[in-house]
């Protein structure tokens, strides 16, 4: 592929030892942010700020394939910004790179804790998994929540009181979310498919947004920032809606304020897409 495109040839050579293994082995989140993303996304608006503590907050959910790299990176960034967040994977199993490409490490969702995975990999080959960043990633994850969860096994609306220790827990107790972020089109399709299967019995709308992120550490970090940026924009719009229509009544607002949150979502995503042109987006309004 890369060699077929002459424009990419030089790049392919530069980056040569590119990870070919299926899921992500990113090194731990270094404290220094990369000076500039490969794709020039460094000059995107710094996703600074967190949402203030007592104001209204949308509830978020991040989804990737194994609930290890991209969804967890985004989970961490959203939770750090004080946004209620939960996260899932859509794969049938948690898959992590193994000693060779043909021997991935495979775990069950919902039952294997990050801690157990960490221990097993450390016992298996500490040096290898430290070097490819797997141990650091899982080390980060076990500070975020207990175990990887599978989206298809999630029962929306079931209170999540047993997840008290998770980061971003506050606000997600009721077990529903307003926005689902998926990290690749396959997951987006899987989420829509699963919501069809669940049959929309709660009659509750949910915005499903896809942000296409490559499965490696660097891209996951950039993608996490992008998701946070989008989440904050959405959250602003939603709290504006509530404010604008507070005591004054909604019909007294004007212009943009007149618009509700839901109808603003497409515009917000489109505006966000212009800020992050390298992360193709998709969205859909689905039902729990």
């Amino acid at each position: 592929m890369a060699t077929a495109d002459p424009r990419l040839r030089s790049r392919a050579q530069q980056q040569q030892p590119a990870p070919v293994a299926p899921p992500p082995p990113p090194p731990p989140p270094a404290e220094t942010t990369p000076a500039m993303g490969l794709d020039g996304s460094g000059d995107a608006p710094e996703s600074s700020g967190t949402s203030s503590d007592d104001s209204f907050k949308l509830k978020f959910c991040t989804v990737c394939a194994s609930n290890q790299n991209r969804s967890m990176e985004a989970h961490l960034q959203l939770a750090t910004a004080q946004l209620p967040t939960i996260s899932f994977g859509t794969g049938s199993l948690v898959r992590l790179p193994g000693p060779t490409i043909n021997q991935p490490n495979v775990y069950n969702f919902n039952s294997t804790t990050y801690e157990a995975i960490h221990k097993e990999l450390a016992d298996q080959n500490t040096q290898l998994y430290t070097q490819n960043g797997l141990l650091n990633m899982i080390g980060r994850n076990l500070n975020i929540k207990k175990y990887p969860e599978r989206f298809q096994d999630w029962m929306p609306g079931k209170p999540r009181l047993d997840h008290k220790g998770d980061q971003g827990y506050h606000g997600t107790e009721s077990g529903v979310v307003d926005v689902i972020f998926t990290c690749e089109e396959r997951c987006f399709d899987a989420v829509l498919e699963d919501l069809h299967n669940k049959g929309g019995r709660m009659n509750r709308p949910v915005h499903v947004l896809n942000v296409d992120i490559k499965d490696n550490h660097e891209e996951a970090r950039v993608g996490g920032q992008a998701i946070l940026d989008l989440a904050l924009s959405l959250n602003n719009a939603a709290s504006e809606e509530r404010k604008a229509r507070g005591e004054t009544g909604w019909d007294r607002g004007s212009g943009g304020a007149r618009q509700g949150f839901d109808e603003k979502v497409p515009e917000i995503v489109a505006a966000w897409q212009e800020r992050w042109p390298t992360l193709p987006a998709l969205w859909s309004l689905a039902w729990f």
Partner: peptide, 14 residues
């Protein structure tokens, strides 16, 4: 527009 292109893509995907 970028917005309508995104909307189109999203409708189709849905």
């Amino acid at each position: 527009t970028p917005a309508s292109r995104l909307a189109l893509k999203s409708i189709e995907r849905t």
